[in-house]
C-alpha cells in the first residue's frame, strides 16, 4: 500500500509525457486540416511541410497546435480521447442496453476472454501434466525439458497463420479453437517451469519423513508435493493468464478475424480509425489487469487458508 503514491506519480509522469507528445505528433495532420479549411499555414502545402521538422512547424504555427488535441483521426490521440472512446464502447453501450452489439468493446472483450480462458485451461493442464511427468520420470525430464525451452524461443506468430489454416482444413469452423491453441502454447511454459520448481521444492528431509510414515507415492504427492508447490503455482498462473491473453490477441491479429479485441485492432488499422485501435489496446490492458488481479485474490485466500504467508 505504501507504493500507491509513487505509482500514481509515475503514472502521472507517463500521462504528462503522452499529453505533451500529442502536439508534435499531430501538428502535421492539424495543419493539413487547417489548410483545407482555408487557414494560412506556414509553409504552404503538405509536401513542403514534409521537409520541415515538427518542432519548426509548431513554432511557426502556434495557433494551430491546439487543433492537434481534437482531431477525428489523430496520429496519436490524447489520453482523454482514448478514455472517451473506451467509455463509448463500454459504459455508454450498457446505458443504451446494447452491451452485446458488435460495436461494443464488451462483446469483443468477451470473445477474446473466452478463448483466453480456454487456452489458459488447456495450457495449464498441459503444463501441470508435463511438470508431474518431468518430476517423476528421468527420461521425460531429459527429453522434454530442452524442447519446452526451445518451443518458447520459436516465435509463435510465425506458426499462428498455419494453425488457423490447419484447423480450417480439418473442418474446425469455430475460430475459438486455433486461438485457444495459440494461447495454450504461450501459457503452458510458465506453468510447467513453475510447477517443476514447486513440486521439487520439498527438501530431502521432508520426503524422508513421509517415507518413515510409510506413505505411498500418491500420498507423498498429494500431502507434500502439491501443497508445497501452491505458491509457485499461483505465481505461474498469473504469468500464464497474461501470456494466454497475449496469445489470443496474437491469434486474432494476422488472420482476418472479425470479432475479438485483436480483430478490433486489425479493423481499426484497415479503416484508418486510430482511436478504435487505442481503445481496443486499452481494453485488452484492462482485461489483463482484471484477470491477474482475480488470480492474485484467489492466491491470497487459498494461501492464507493453508496458513502460508502471502
Amino acid at each position: 500500500m505504501r507504493s500507491i503514491l509513487p505509482v500514481l506519480t509515475v503514472l502521472a509522469i507517463i500521462v504528462a509525457i503522452w499529453q505533451l507528445a500529442v502536439a508534435p505528433m499531430n501538428i502535421r495532420t492539424a495543419l493539413d486540416m487547417a489548410e483545407r479549411g482555408g487557414a494560412v499555414v506556414e509553409p504552404e502545402g503538405g509536401r513542403a511541410r514534409l521537409e520541415v521538422s515538427s518542432w519548426r512547424l509548431m513554432i511557426d504555427n502556434p495557433e494551430h497546435v491546439a487543433a492537434g488535441y481534437s482531431l477525428d483521426r489523430p496520429r496519436l490521440p490524447t489520453p482523454a480521447q482514448v478514455g472517451e472512446e473506451l467509455w463509448k464502447g463500454t459504459g455508454k453501450m450498457i446505458e443504451r442496453g446494447r452491451a452485446w452489439s458488435k460495436r461494443s468493446l464488451i462483446y469483443h472483450g468477451w470473445i477474446t476472454l473466452q478463448s483466453t480462458l480456454w487456452g489458459f485451461a488447456l495450457g495449464t493442464t498441459l503444463g501441470l501434466l508435463g511438470a508431474v511427468a518431468i518430476v517423476y520420470s528421468r527420461v521425460v525430464d531429459m527429453s522434454l525439458m530442452p524442447w519446452a525451452i526451445i518451443s518458447q524461443t520459436i516465435p509463435i506468430v510465425a506458426l499462428a497463420p498455419m494453425i488457423i489454416v490447419l484447423s480450417g482444413q480439418l473442418g474446425i469452423e469455430d475460430r475459438i479453437v486455433p486461438k485457444a491453441i495459440i494461447s495454450a502454447y504461450l501459457c503452458y511454459f510458465p506453468v510447467l517451469v513453475g510447477m517443476v520448481k514447486g513440486l521439487r521444492s520439498p527438501g530431502a528431509h521432508q520426503l524422508d519423513l513421509l517415507h518413515t510414515y510409510s506413505a505411498t507415492g500418491l500420498q507423498g504427492f498429494l500431502k507434500l508435493r502439491v501443497p508445497a508447490s501452491l505458491p509457485y503455482l499461483f505465481t505461474s498462473l498469473k504469468i500464464g493468464i497474461a501470456a494466454a491473453l497475449v496469445g489470443t490477441i496474437v491469434g486474432e491479429l494476422p488472420t482476418g478475424a472479425i470479432s475479438g479485441l485483436g480483430a478490433r485492432i486489425l479493423i481499426g488499422d484497415q479503416f484508418g480509425t486510430p482511436l478504435a485501435i487505442w481503445a481496443a489496446l486499452f481494453a485488452a490492458a484492462i482485461l489483463a489487469g482484471v484477470l491477474v488481479t482475480l488470480i492474485d485474490i484467489t492466491q491470497r485466500i487459498v494461501l492464507r487458508s493453508m496458513g502460508m504467508q502471502t
Binding site: 496520429r75 506468430v157 504469468i239 497474461a242 501470456a243 491473453l245 497475449v246 490477441i249 496474437v250 491479429l253 479485441l261 485483436g262 485492432i265 486489425l266 481499426g268 488499422d269 486510430p274 485501435i277 487505442w278 481496443a280 489496446l281 485488452a284 490492458a285 489483463a288 491477474v292
Partner: peptide, 15 residues
Amino acid sequence: AALPIVGIAPILVSW
C-alpha cells in the same frame, strides 16, 4: 510487460 503490446504494431507501422 505482461500486456499484449504486439497490438501496437499497426499504429507504429502507420507512423
